Simulated scan of single mutants.
Amino acid sequence: MSQDIMDDHSMCEHVIKVNGVDIAYQLHGNALRPTLLLIHGLSTPLTGWPRAMVDAFVAANFHVLLVDNRDVGRSQQLDHLPIPNMGWVITKLKLGFSIKTPYQLEDMMQDIIALLDALKLSEVHVVGASMGGMIAQLMAIHHPQKVKTLTSIMSTTGYKQLPGIDKNIRETLLQKPVSKEHEDQMHSHIKKWQVIGSPDYPSSETYLQQYVESMLQRGITAKGTIRQMLAIMSAGNREGELSKLNIPSLVIHGDRDGLVNVAGGKATADAIPNAKLKIYPGMGHDFPVELIPSIVNDIVTHVNTHLGDRA
């Protein structure tokens, strides 16, 4: 897609207080078209959605709503909420105890629901990636009337017995930037995306620099990332609730995802009645440029198949 398309189509950005939190969002395309809501993952602002994807959805006649989750991007940083001792948190989880966290994934889900209410969007087609997939699943579980279709990408059900993070990825993610200087932050985030990325579709250095720059400029903080991570760590198993869904669902995952193992995608598709599963060989925990047209087509076909279901 042309780099100019996003500049040509209608786009507006606002920050609004919903559910007691300032949430930033963007709307792209024609408001008279069906709305496609895109929710991204851990410490990833709305610019984490590749520009080519947003352009393609608009070109496919969708009104696209992008959001910054709480604690990332231009949404509110909840620094007044205390962060528990992480060593103690991990110990409690290993022993099977519940943990107290600044907020839950359900709170993040409620931010989105309140935003939809404020925008007077009665129902949307929800697409969630990684943590965003978990939030999208919770929307479908708790507010099914608002979710016309569900697409869960590189996500999981919260079942703790599924395979965990690859060791080399965990070690890389635990490494802190050398300093708070922009260059060191850039280097750290680029390294992270390289290690979680798609082995068969490595991103060029130029693309990664531009991609990471767009997210850092929008806003990523260490404390915000920890609070979001704690919400993921404390989440329960959604499989039982997912099994009761009656929403057209598509699950997309890469078979080389070392951050959220492909078993998580398979478990999600197994849990949701009649869900469609699309596994991409060689894809990791990112959206490779080469696969974007195919992934967009998967989602557009899924949504268009069910456009008239609740007419």
Rank of each mutant, 00 (worst) to 15 (best):
Glu183Ala: 13
Met6Ala: 11
Val15Asp: 04
Met283Asp: 02
Met6Phe: 07
Gly132Lys: 10
Lys223Ser: 14
Leu66Pro: 09
Leu162Glu: 04
Leu95Tyr: 08
Arg238Gln: 12
Glu241Cys: 02
Leu162Ala: 14
Thr156Ala: 13
Val127Gly: 02
Leu116Arg: 02
Ala24Asn: 09
Phe57Ser: 02
Arg218Asn: 07
Gln104Trp: 13
Gly20Glu: 05
Val18Ile: 10
Tyr25Thr: 05
His40Ile: 09
Ile83Ala: 07
Leu173Cys: 00
Ala271Lys: 06
Thr305His: 15
Asn30Glu: 12
Gln26Met: 14
Ser188Glu: 05
Ser198Tyr: 04
Gly264Cys: 11
Gln77His: 13
Ala222Cys: 00
Ser198Arg: 03
Gly264Thr: 09
Pro273Met: 11
Ile113Pro: 01
Ala271Glu: 08
Ile220Ala: 05
Leu250Tyr: 10
Leu173Val: 02
Arg238Cys: 02
Thr305Ile: 04
Thr91His: 15
Tyr103Gly: 01
Val15Met: 05
Gln217Val: 04
Pro293Leu: 08
Glu205Asp: 13
Met108Ser: 06
Ile90Arg: 14
Lys176His: 08
Asp309Ala: 12
Leu150Gln: 03
Ser243Glu: 06
Ala114Arg: 06
Met154Trp: 01
Ala231Ser: 15
Met233Ala: 14
Val296Gln: 00
Ala129Pro: 00
Gly282Thr: 01
Leu119Arg: 04
His285Cys: 04
Ala263Glu: 13
Asn168Met: 07
Ile135His: 00
His302Ala: 02
Ser249Glu: 11
Gln217Cys: 09
Glu123Met: 13
Phe62Glu: 04
Arg310Met: 07
Lys278Glu: 08
Ser214Lys: 08
Asp4Phe: 12
Leu307Thr: 01
Leu208Gly: 00
Gly87Ala: 13
Lys176Tyr: 07
Tyr280Ala: 10
His14Ala: 09
Leu121Arg: 08
Ser214His: 10
Leu277Thr: 00
Leu121Tyr: 06
Gly164Thr: 05
Phe287Arg: 01
Ser294Asp: 05
Met233Arg: 11
His285Ala: 03
Gln175Phe: 10
Met154Glu: 02
Lys278Asn: 09
Met108Gly: 07
Gln3Asp: 05
Glu171Cys: 03
Met108Cys: 05
Lys244Gln: 15
Asp22Ile: 04
Pro50Glu: 04
Arg238Val: 02
Val178Asp: 05
Ile299Ala: 06
Arg74Tyr: 08
Met53Asn: 00
Asp7Ile: 10
Leu277Gln: 07
Glu205Gln: 14
Pro102Gly: 05
Ser203Glu: 05
Phe97Val: 00
Asp8Lys: 15
Leu32Ser: 15
Asn261Arg: 07
Ser155Leu: 11
Leu42Cys: 03
Tyr25Ser: 06
Asp7Lys: 15
Ile232Gln: 03
Ala136Phe: 12
Glu213Asn: 14
Leu307Tyr: 04
Leu115Val: 06
Val300Asn: 10
Thr268Val: 13
Met53Phe: 00
Ile299Leu: 09
